[in-house]
Amino acid sequence: MTAPAGYHLAQVNVGRLRTDTDDPRVAEFMANLDRVNGLGKRMPGFVWMMEGSGEPGTGNTEAKIDGDPRFVSNLTVWEDVESLERFVWGTIHKQFYEKRAEWFETLGEMHFAMWWVPEGHRPSLDEALARLDHLKTHGDSDHAFGWSYLKEARMWQTHACAPVAAE
């Protein structure tokens, strides 16, 4: 499914850390948030990212889900599928993705969703979580979808890691 004219691609990714954010067992993840997020912001096709407090090394860890400080989220908007794919599978981000089982619990359910948003729209975390819930309940649709729904998405097929944490 190609982006409708006048639309961008939004994505939300949530996970639950195995420990609190100040625990040494997640120190590598926390220490690299600014590096990986900064790279994403400099990528061609990047449009917007939900920001946390702005404090270095915190990413969006302060945007608690259901009041749980160990649930963390990432919410971004991209010009197109290819731009998001390049970032996820073609940069250092992939190295951190491969290590996610060290830092995140296995949720046993969908934790990632994408959907089209009108250019200029900045989705809220509540909106993103509603899209994720819709995907969990109804499967892929124009309302919310995963990588396999996008015919133009190719990199995930060859670069994605085995579904270990939260898939």
Rank of each mutant, 00 (worst) to 15 (best):
V47I: 13
N74V: 13
A128D: 01
K151F: 12
F46K: 04
V72F: 00
P118I: 05
P44V: 01
G139P: 01
E28W: 11
M30N: 00
E28L: 12
T19I: 10
D22E: 14
Y149P: 04
V72Y: 00
R70W: 08
R35H: 04
V77Q: 06
D133L: 08
N74T: 11
L132F: 09
A101T: 11
G120V: 07
E51H: 08
F96T: 03
A31S: 15
D142Y: 02
N60A: 15
A165P: 07
R42F: 02
G146K: 10
R154D: 14
W78Y: 07
V12E: 00
G139V: 01
W156T: 03
M110G: 12
G38Y: 01
G45Y: 06
L132R: 04
I65Q: 04
L39Q: 13
W147T: 03
G40C: 01
G57A: 07
T58A: 08
L107R: 08
P56S: 02
N32T: 03
K64Q: 11
V36M: 07
V12R: 05
M114K: 09
M50E: 15
G6W: 09
S141R: 03
T58I: 13
E85S: 04
A31R: 12
R70E: 10
P69I: 07
N32L: 09
D68M: 06
D66S: 13
E127K: 02
L135M: 10
P123T: 01
R86M: 13
A27K: 14
G6N: 04
H93Y: 06
A165T: 09
W78Q: 02
E55F: 07
H121I: 06
R25H: 13
C161N: 04
L132N: 09
P69C: 07
V72I: 15
C161Q: 09
S124T: 15
E102F: 14
S124V: 01
G45A: 08
V14M: 12
W116E: 11
D66A: 14
M1D: 04
F46H: 15
A130Q: 13
A128S: 09
T76P: 10
Y149L: 02
M43K: 10
T19R: 15
A165E: 09
F145D: 03
A27L: 11
H138T: 01
M43Q: 15
P4I: 03
S148K: 11
G52I: 10
G40L: 05
T21E: 11
S141F: 09
S124L: 01
M43S: 10
W116H: 06
S124C: 06
V36G: 03
D126W: 05
A160Y: 08
D22Q: 12
R100W: 06
M155S: 00
D23M: 06
E51I: 08
L9S: 00
G15N: 03
V81P: 03
T58Q: 15
E51R: 12
A3F: 00
M50C: 13
S73N: 12
P69V: 07
G45D: 00
R154F: 06
V26D: 04
S53Q: 09
L84R: 02
M49W: 07
A113C: 02
T2D: 15
G45K: 07
D80L: 01
S148N: 12
F87L: 07
K151H: 13
G90N: 11
G52E: 00
M30L: 05
M114Y: 03
T19D: 10
Q157R: 04
R16W: 02
N74D: 05
F87P: 07
V164F: 10
V14N: 05
R100I: 08
P56L: 02
T137E: 14
E85R: 09
